[in-house]
């Protein structure tokens, strides 16, 4: 039983990471109907930035804040320079650019930081497991951080004028312009926010899986599955979906398919969602975007 609970909680901890990346994906999808295939690689690069800062002697939490801030600025820059001109381009062009960025970021990271696995510090220490051994210190801490970030993002969208304007710009760009919302800036801001959330996810997952240029490939895949499971049009759904995928992955890996097939579970979840309930658990029924 304890082993089962441990797997469950450990699933929630990784699920929080998937939930963050899924949220980042859904935010961008809602606003632009683009899926950012480079979201994971952006987070990976952010994590290298954090590692560089920490190794240069910057205290962990200051490095954390600096990294999130820098990632947001870079995210805004990417949207403004690369994606804004492609706003009305067909799916193929946007996917092409995202895949191009994925390849570029991955190679740049390999070039600068090499392809060897690097340990990444956890701010929560190595100490003994907590809560009757169900949670490791890092699992508990990273779950706390991701939940905090997700709550903050929710509150930002729910209670602030800017958050409301960003939602409006995503839902109805024409009406938003008519009430004076600068829609293009809101999209860029959304990218910034997504990049910041991704950076947190990267820094939280790196102590567990070690840092290397391909660190986020699996995470991105599970985040896709989470976003689809929750409903790709629903941010809250994406978070729940991401958490569920984390739990399914961990329990499935431990008791059903074994670790060798873990990654294939993302594919299975995606296909099952598309066959059984294409709109996801919380998404609205959507017409085919042919």
């Amino acid at each position: 039983m304890d082993a089962f609970l441990h797997q469950l909680f450990s699933g929630i901890a990784t699920g929080g990471i998937y939930a963050s990346v899924a949220l980042a994906l859904v935010m961008i999808y809602q606003a632009t109907h683009h899926v950012n295939f480079a979201q994971g690689e952006m987070a990976m690069l952010s994590t290298y930035v954090a590692l560089t800062l920490i190794q240069a002697g910057v205290p962990y939490w200051i490095a954390f804040v600096l990294t999130v801030g820098a990632s947001m600025i870079v995210g805004i820059g990417i949207q403004w320079l690369v994606l804004r001109p492609l706003e009305k381009a067909p799916v193929l062009a946007s996917v092409g650019v995202f895949i191009g960025m994925l390849l570029m970021f991955n190679s740049v990271a390999g070039w600068i930081f090499s392809y060897t696995l690097k340990p990444f510090p956890s701010p929560f220490g190595e100490g003994p497991p907590m809560l009757n051994g169900l949670f490791s210190r890092h699992e508990l801490g990273s779950t706390g951080v991701t939940l905090l970030v997700l709550t903050a993002v929710w509150a930002f969208f729910r209670f602030t004028r800017l958050g409301l304007a960003m939602r409006a710009a995503a839902f109805n760009p024409i009406s938003s312009r008519l009430v004076g919302v600068p829609v293009a800036k809101m999209l860029a801001l959304g990218w910034g926010l997504a990049a910041g959330i991704g950076a947190v996810a990267g820094m939280m997952v790196a102590p567990v899986v070690f840092l290397d240029p391909n660190m986020m490939a699996g995470v991105l895949l599970y985040a896709f599955a989470g976003a689809l499971l929750g409903g790709i049009t629903n941010p809250l759904g994406a978070v729940v979906g991401g958490l569920l995928v984390g739990v399914i992955e961990n329990l499935g890996g431990a008791y059903v398919v074994g670790t060798e097939l873990k990654l294939s579970m993302a594919l299975v979840i995606i296909v099952v969602v598309l066959v059984v309930k294409p709109s996801g658990l919380f998404g609205k029924t959507l017409a085919s975007r042919v």
Partner: peptide
């Protein structure tokens, strides 16, 4: 703004 509440429409 169909997805938003009446209040949010007015705030916008």
């Amino acid at each position: 703004f169909m997805e938003l509440s009446v209040e949010e429409n007015l705030r916008l």
